[in-house]
Structure formats: C-alpha cells, structure tokens
C-alpha cells in the first residue's frame, strides 16, 4: 500500500527509524517496503521530501498510528 518514489528518495533512513514494524529495507540507493507493512503512514508523514505515498488513510490506521506515536 505504501510506495516509495525512487526519484525523490534520498535514502536517508528517517522512515526506517519511525517504522513500528521494521518493514522498510534501505541500502545505498535502494529502498523496499516489505510485505508485513501495516499502512500506519508514519513513514509517509516523517519523510522530509514526500518520497513515500500511501493509499487514502482510513480511520483505523490513523488511530493505530497515533497510539504508536504517543
């Protein structure tokens, strides 16, 4: 559900750091979202350059994300 826009990504790792389920793999200039992503959107929100895009957020995932973030 979450997609990385390679042309924008700077491979900085901010998304990896906030991911609550360790589902982002980052190499020198490669990024992959793994299958166990829960669509919580934290990576999308932290990205300094809007290089990650998610599907329309649903209430459930927002709720879960705010619990994880607090």
């Amino acid at each position: 559900m979450i997609n990385a826009i390679d042309d924008r990504c700077d491979f900085c790792g901010a998304c990896v750091a906030v991911c609550p389920v360790d589902c982002i793999e980052l190499r020198e200039s490669r990024i992959a979202i793994l299958d166990h992503c829960i669509d919580c959107m934290l990576c999308v929100w932290i990205c300094p350059v809007e290089a990650l895009a998610g599907a329309d957020k649903n209430l459930e995932s927002e709720c879960e994300a705010s619990m994880i973030a607090s």
Binding site: C12, G13, A14, V16, A17, V18, C19, P20, D22, L26, L42, W45, I46, C47, P48, A69, S70
Partner: peptide, 22 residues
C-alpha cells in the same frame, strides 16, 4: 538513525514521531 541491528537483537529502537526531527 535507521538502526536495525538493535531491533534484530531484540531491543526496541523505533523512535516516537514527536522525538524525530524531519
């Protein structure tokens, strides 16, 4: 910041959004 070594070893390393500077 993107440390995964700690996670693999079983430590809780993910950062709260409010404590992360973008």
């Amino acid at each position: 910041v993107e440390s995964r070594v700690g996670r693999w070893a079983g430590l809780r390393t993910s950062i709260k959004m409010k404590d992360m500077e973008s």
